[in-house]
Design a protein around this nucleic acid. Structure first.
Lengths: 172, 172
DNA sequence: GCGCAATTGCGAACAATTCGCAATTACTAT
DNA sequence: ATAGTAATTGCGAATTGTTCGCAATTGCGC
């Protein structure tokens, strides 16, 4: 639905206006295959209208989120929020600690979770965000040197990874 | 396990030292019933040793996370990460959009998800984070004026909520 | 106890996001 | 079409959460 509605009508019916920032943010989100940071969205939006400010991108995103059209998720938690359109079919994320890849899947698993929550906990789920970190199937077969920025226990830390000021010397 | 290990031994075996910041951060996390921001942890830690710096709290938390002892989750996404001990039994979070309450539950649901991921996607899950936003059972019965900072679609917005600079006048 | 590397505290630096406000713009009703 | 008006923008400055560099301190193995 979110992909097929007329944004102008949708906004106007709720007392908002269709403006260039909103239009272009909407387009970028719709065309994006993955999750984008606000900054990435702003960069792409400026390809259409170079005068659009980052703050307006944030405001558009917040508006969309409040209207249920978009959502923010904090995936690999490197500090920046990632935005995407809110598909009616929720999805979940598999974050590989080894190669850093983020797969997303939609569908039945989330549906199962949703009905379970309703039946067993009386909770009407609106947005389900399921983030899983672990090791994906390809890395389980052929482990790669980590490029992920995610947290990872040391005993299995691939050598040569950036370590910051935490790793004791003998582990470097 | 995380609650019963001897932190000093655990750290030393991995080439780290047991220091006051780490000791107190550990104690605070262990005594906390909910999820704490780094700042909240620092405040409590200073009750034991007033000289402990926020940066050291962050460093302790990061260390614990890398060792698999603690984890950060971005729940109500109000900008700050929330920390907790990494229980061996994963848990999931139900975030009520109406009253802002965060319930956490552990157990079988997460286990089900874990085995599903392994069988259907070949993904070895290490950490499963399941965040669900929606309306909790008590709010479904008796809706309260929202105190949540979470995102909420407007059509169901309780009146009198703080609105920022987004809500058009006729909705205020 | 000694020695040395790991760790701290401090303050400055950074990055993501929000805010205040005057100028602009989209919509509504003429 | 046009004017009126409130919603929205752009700008820059402010805030907030987190990290960094470095000299001083401290825990731990010998």
């Amino acid at each position: 639905m979110a992909d097929t509605i007329d944004l102008g009508t949708y906004l106007r019916q709720r007392g908002h206006r269709l403006t260039n920032p909103r239009r272009f943010v909407w387009d970028v989100l719709g065309a994006a295959r993955g999750h984008l940071t606000a900054d990435q969205i702003a960069t792409q939006v400026r390809g259409h209208d170079s005068g659009i400010n980052l703050a307006s991108v944030y405001r558009s995103l917040t508006l969309f989120a409040r209207l249920g059209l978009a959502r923010e998720s904090n995936l690999g938690t490197d500090g920046a929020g990632r935005w995407e359109l809110a598909h009616p079919d929720d999805e979940f994320h598999l974050i590989c600690d080894s190669c850093g890849d983020v797969q997303h899947h939609g569908g039945d698993l989330v549906d199962q979770v949703r009905s379970h929550l309703g039946e067993d906990h009386g909770f009407q789920a609106a947005t389900i965000e399921l983030s899983v970190s672990g090791v994906c199937s390809s890395c389980a077969d052929a482990p790669q040197p980590g490029i992920s920025r995610g947290l990872r226990p040391w005993p299995s830390l691939p050598s040569g990874t950036r370590t910051g000021d935490i790793l004791p010397k003998e582990n470097r």
